[in-house]
Computed example of a mutant assay.
Amino acid sequence: MASLRMPRRALPSLKSVRTPSSISTSTFTSTHLRPSVPSQSRSQPPQIRPYHSTLHPRLPDHTYNNSQTAILTASLPHIPTHGFSAESLALGARDAGFLDVSVQLFPRAEFDLILFWLASRRGLLRAKVEEGALFRRVADQAGRDVSSLDVEEKCRILVMERLKMNEDVKGQWSGALAQMSLLGNITLSLSELHALSNDILSLAGDSAVDASWYSRRFGLSAIYASAEMVMTRDPTPDLSETETFVNRRFEDKLALNQKIEGLSQCVSFVGNTAVGVGRSWGLKI
Score class of each variant (00 low, 15 high):
residue 44 Q to S: 05
residue 15 K to G: 13
residue 195 A to V: 00
residue 162 R to W: 15
residue 192 E to I: 01
residue 62 H to I: 12
residue 91 L to P: 01
residue 86 A to D: 09
residue 260 I to K: 14
residue 173 W to A: 02
residue 190 L to A: 06
residue 44 Q to W: 09
residue 277 V to S: 13
residue 44 Q to L: 10
residue 22 S to M: 07
residue 208 A to K: 07
residue 140 D to L: 10
residue 190 L to V: 09
residue 76 L to T: 00
residue 172 Q to I: 05
residue 118 L to M: 05
residue 236 T to N: 13
residue 115 L to D: 00
residue 284 K to L: 15
residue 17 V to R: 12
residue 161 E to F: 11
residue 193 L to K: 07
residue 124 L to T: 00
residue 116 F to I: 04
residue 108 R to E: 12
residue 79 I to R: 10
residue 83 G to W: 06
residue 202 S to R: 08
residue 216 R to F: 01
residue 213 W to D: 07
residue 225 A to I: 08
residue 124 L to R: 01
residue 236 T to Q: 14
residue 285 I to E: 04
residue 267 V to W: 05
residue 171 G to C: 08
residue 269 F to A: 06
residue 278 G to H: 08
residue 192 E to G: 02
residue 83 G to Y: 05
residue 86 A to I: 11
residue 214 Y to S: 05
residue 197 S to Q: 06
residue 187 T to L: 14
residue 148 S to I: 07
residue 99 L to G: 14
residue 232 T to K: 06
residue 44 Q to K: 11
residue 57 P to R: 11
residue 150 D to E: 11
residue 40 Q to L: 15
residue 159 V to M: 12
residue 177 L to A: 13
residue 86 A to P: 02
residue 283 L to M: 12
residue 227 A to V: 04
residue 230 V to C: 05
residue 42 R to W: 15
residue 263 L to M: 13
residue 269 F to N: 01
residue 238 D to G: 14
residue 152 E to K: 15
residue 108 R to I: 07
residue 220 L to E: 01
residue 127 A to S: 11
residue 238 D to M: 15
residue 258 Q to I: 06
residue 231 M to Q: 04
residue 256 L to Q: 12
residue 227 A to E: 04
residue 76 L to Q: 05
residue 201 L to W: 06
